[in-house]
C-alpha cells in the first residue's frame, strides 16, 4: 500500500462522514443509527472477528491434513 492509497481511503471515509452527518435521511430507524460511523465500526470489527473466529475454529476442529480422507 502506497501513501496515496491510504489517502484515497481516508478521503472516501471523509466523504461518507460528510454525507452521514450532513445529508443522510433515515427511513427505517434502527438502534445503531444513533452510533456515529456505525458501519465503519461494524465493518472493522466484523472483519477482524471473522478472521480470528474462523482461524480459531479452524484450529479447534475444522482444519486437517490434505490426505485426511485418504488415510
Amino acid at each position: 500500500m502506497k501513501t496515496w492509497h491510504w489517502i484515497a481511503l481516508g478521503v472516501v471515509f471523509l466523504i461518507s462522514l460528510v454525507l452521514e452527518f450532513g445529508f443522510m435521511e433515515i427511513k427505517s430507524p434502527h438502534w445503531w443509527n444513533h452510533i456515529p460511523a456505525f458501519y465503519a465500526i461494524w465493518g472493522f470489527i466484523g472483519c477482524v472477528a471473522i478472521i480470528y473466529i474462523s482461524k480459531w475454529l479452524g484450529k479447534l476442529f475444522i482444519l486437517s491434513d490434505e490426505d485426511y480422507y485418504d488415510r
Binding site: 460511523a37 458501519y39 472493522f44 472483519c47 478472521i51
Partner: peptide
C-alpha cells in the same frame, strides 16, 4: 464505510 474498513482490516 463497510468496504473501506473491511479493506483496512
Amino acid at each position: 464505510q463497510i468496504l473501506v474498513f473491511t479493506f483496512i482490516g
